[in-house]
């Protein structure tokens, strides 16, 4: 199996507190991966390490053979949980901007996603609802032709209808046959049906990385149930 991500012995500390501890993991070059774990398990730190937004204190992280730093972002699209957009732009202007600054951006795909979400592209970003704002952030990431897309809690704080729209967007527009999409979420039961693989983190350590199908077959229980067990 080809790997897009290779992590060996990555450790990250903040103020002498170990957030990620000696994590070693290789991730496949395509598929939808759920990153789950209780609060404080290191999910956000894990994604930020992969995006090159923070440095590991120990160990090494490589994406397609390149050691991760900020410059890795021609291979990675990252959406933070609280990520803002330039609110002085309209949706259309933001897409124009994205088309110019991301060489790998597909404008037609972005327009198609925005139309499917029924967002008026003349609306100023500052006038978008939280759900529309998150959806636009995700639409921009999904429109990039990069091997790795990272999304940190994209469903957090959204109502069930918007969450469903976002999940539908993943299914319709994520190119999981050639991209790896890693999504962290607490809404485990909602994303479970779409996942190809699952990463369980607990207290900064890798508890489990497995194929979702294999997990269901061997353990015979839902991921939410497993997550509860891990949390205990």
């Amino acid at each position: 199996m080809q790997h897009v991500v290779n992590i060996s012995g990555a450790t990250k500390r903040f103020h002498n507190q170990t957030v990620i501890q000696s994590l070693s993991l290789s991730l496949p070059s395509h598929g939808f991966i759920g990153l789950v774990g209780p609060n404080g398990s290191g999910k956000t730190t894990f994604l930020r390490l992969l995006a090159g937004l923070i440095r590991p204190d120990e160990g090494q992280i490589q994406i397609n053979g390149h050691t991760v730093s900020r410059r890795i972002n021609h291979q990675v699209a990252y959406v933070a949980g609280d990520q803002g957009l330039y609110d002085f732009y309209t949706v259309q202007e933001m897409l124009h901007y994205a088309a110019k600054v991301y060489p790998d951006f597909q404008p037609s795909k972005a327009t198609e996603i925005i139309q499917s979400l029924k967002i008026n592209d003349h609306t100023k970003i500052k006038h978008l609802s939280k759900g529309q704002h998150t959806s636009l952030n995700i639409a921009i990431s999904l429109s990039r032709q990069v091997p790795l897309i990272l999304m940190d809690e994209p469903l957090a704080g959204l109502d069930p209808v918007v969450r469903e729209d976002i999940l539908k967007m993943f299914v319709a527009f994520a190119e999981v046959e050639k991209q790896t999409l890693i999504v962290s979420s607490h809404e485990v039961s909602e994303i479970e049906p779409y996942l190809d693989y699952v990463i369980f983190l607990n207290q900064g350590q890798l508890h489990l990385f497995a194929s979702a199908e294999e997990l269901r077959e061997t353990k015979g229980q839902s991921m939410l149930h497993m997550m509860k067990e891990v949390a205990r």
């Binding site: 995006a51 972002n73 699209a77 803002g84 600054v101 790998d104």
Partner: peptide
């Protein structure tokens, strides 16, 4: 402050 730092840093261009 505007939470756009992750977006700005994620631009695939030289610093």
């Amino acid at each position: 402050r505007g939470n756009t730092a992750t977006h700005w840093l994620n631009l695939p261009h030289h610093g």
